[in-house]
Design a protein around this nucleic acid. Structure first.
Length: 433
RNA sequence: UCCGCAGUAGCUCAAUGGUAGAGCGGGUGGCUGUUAACCACUAGGUUGGGGGUUCAAGUCCCUCCUGCGGAGCCA
């Protein structure tokens, strides 16, 4: 007897052959002397047929004890059959149960978010979560390819840091051999010196924000990709944002069509993003348009969530909003030479109400300006001395942005809440599993 | 932190202030082609905790806890 072990992904190449597959029971049905076992192995789903008159008693005895998510090794002949999901099924000749699982918590009907998140480690076994994790994986792959293919060097920035990048209220604090350390909120400050060393750099890793946010658009631990480019000015940064988004979306649409279909994502809504240019609104234009639309925003304020949604509904692709008031933005941003009360900052808002996915800016290249800003923001000067060295030793124009992976994936997949876009979400009241 | 909503079987939800139910899941039985199979039977409850109003509370009131949605802040 053949003992060739394959995955379900390789099944169609083995029609008519006897093969072995290892996996878990996704579902089972019985019909008299027939048992249908839907096996999943992480690569696909396969209907296995056990027909009592045609198998050894031992095989039948095993088949009837199988429960949802029991682990097993099944051997049989691959046969094409119109009645089988996927067109192929396995006529079982041998069956080895590795473990019979007790009642599996996640059933066929709907569950609530609290229950699912408490069982996240088991929830990952469902089809929808497979699709989301694969899209996330492809997104990260496409992002790395984008930067690696353009000569960027990956710089892994530290997780444990001595001070804040943007305000201390949202930092996770931890004890570090008698000192206080904070979990990183951004790799940017570490990337700027690296850009002076290597020209084009990026980092890609987890970041931590202890914000007491309880919305669908926030996690306390999320992944961010941040490029930083020497000699890149603001206008070039805007082009980079567009080039980056359009190319990554193209790649993901190519590689994830099946998963997006499973997620019932209307991919025609994503097509416009593959084409440049994107609409760009100066902050002042954006405010004027919002007032026209009925918002109560006043010039000088940051945009609220409703404001962002109102604006993005006007366009079919991401929207760039530029030159925000300097006072609502971080200390390290370059002032607009035409109006120093504004910063050379850009937010990229995703369509369909998914909100801000990218925040970027040209960085201040003036030592004097940064010293003043650090004082204004009441940041601990000593902690930034090393950062200021970037302006002491060969200051240079440079720009960069950060993109939150989960928000991007949520938008691509059309899921409403970030909690499904990361394998193990960390939320304000959730550290388990 | 603030505003709003919710908490009933393992899960998802019903139940005019008047005997706590259904579907799914579990168990038993039936069926040779099921597609979240179907059919029959069956087990399963301190209605989130505490206090109060009432002849009577899952239901009304107070309080605490937990979750969900949103605001602010951000990616």
């Amino acid at each position: 007897m053949s003992r060739r072990v394959i995955t379900i992904a390789e099944l169609t190449a083995h029609a008519g052959e006897e093969i072995t597959i290892r996996g878990w029971v996704y579902n089972w049905r019985k019909k008299g002397k027939l048992r249908f076992i839907i096996l999943r192995d992480g690569f696909g789903y396969l209907q296995c047929i056990v027909f009592r008159p045609e198998v050894e008693d031992e095989v039948w005895e095993t088949a009837v004890t199988l429960t949802q998510e029991s682990s097993l090794e099944v051997t049989g002949t691959v046969v094409a059959d119109e009645r089988a999901p996927g067109g192929f099924e396995l006529k079982v000749s041998a069956l080895k149960a590795l473990q019979i699982a007790p009642e599996f918590p996640i059933g066929k009907k709907d569950h609530g978010p609290d229950f699912l998140l408490n069982n996240r480690h088991l929830w990952l076994r469902s089809k929808r979560q497979h699709a989301l994790m694969r899209v996330r994986s492809q997104v990260e792959f496409a992002i790395r390819e984008f930067f690696q293919g353009r000569g960027y060097t990956l710089i892994d920035s530290p997780i444990l840091t001595p001070a804040a990048c943007e305000g201390t209220s949202s930092l996770f604090e931890t004890e570090y051999f008698g000192e206080t350390a904070y979990l990183s909120q951004s790799g940017q400050l570490y990337l700027e010196p690296a850009a002076a060393a290597l020209g084009k750099v990026y980092c890609f890793g987890p970041t931590f924000r202890a914000e007491k946010s309880k919305t669908r658009r926030h996690l306390t631990e999320f992944w961010m990709v941040e490029p930083e480019v020497a000699w890149l000015r603001f206008d070039g940064l805007l082009d980079l944002c567009e080039e980056f988004l359009s190319e990554v979306v193209v790649r993901v649409l190519e590689s994830c069509s099946e998963d997006l279909e499973r997620l019932e994502r209307d991919v025609s809504r994503l097509e416009p993003t593959t084409k440049r240019p994107y609409p760009r609104l100066d902050y002042a234009e954006a405010v004027a348009k919002l007032v026209e639309l009925g918002s109560d925003i006043e010039f000088g304020e940051d945009l609220g969530g409703d404001d962002e949604t109102m604006l993005t509904e006007l366009y079919d692709r991401p929207l760039l909003i530029t030159r925000y008031p300097a006072k609502v933005k971080a200390f390290y941003m370059q002032p607009d030479p035409e109006d120093p009360s504004r910063a050379l900052a850009v937010d990229v808002l995703a369509p369909e109400g998914y909100g801000e996915i990218i925040g970027g800016s040209e960085r201040s290249d003036s030592l004097e300006h940064l010293e003043r800003k650090i004082a204004e923001h009441e940041l601990p000067r000593e902690a930034f001395e090393w950062y200021l060295d970037v302006r002491r030793y060969g200051s240079f124009p440079h720009s960069g942005f950060g993109m939150g992976i989960e928000r991007f994936v949520a938008w691509i997949c059309g899921v409403p809440h970030l909690r499904e876009t990361i394998p193990y979400p960390r939320l304000i009241n959730r550290l388990y599993p």
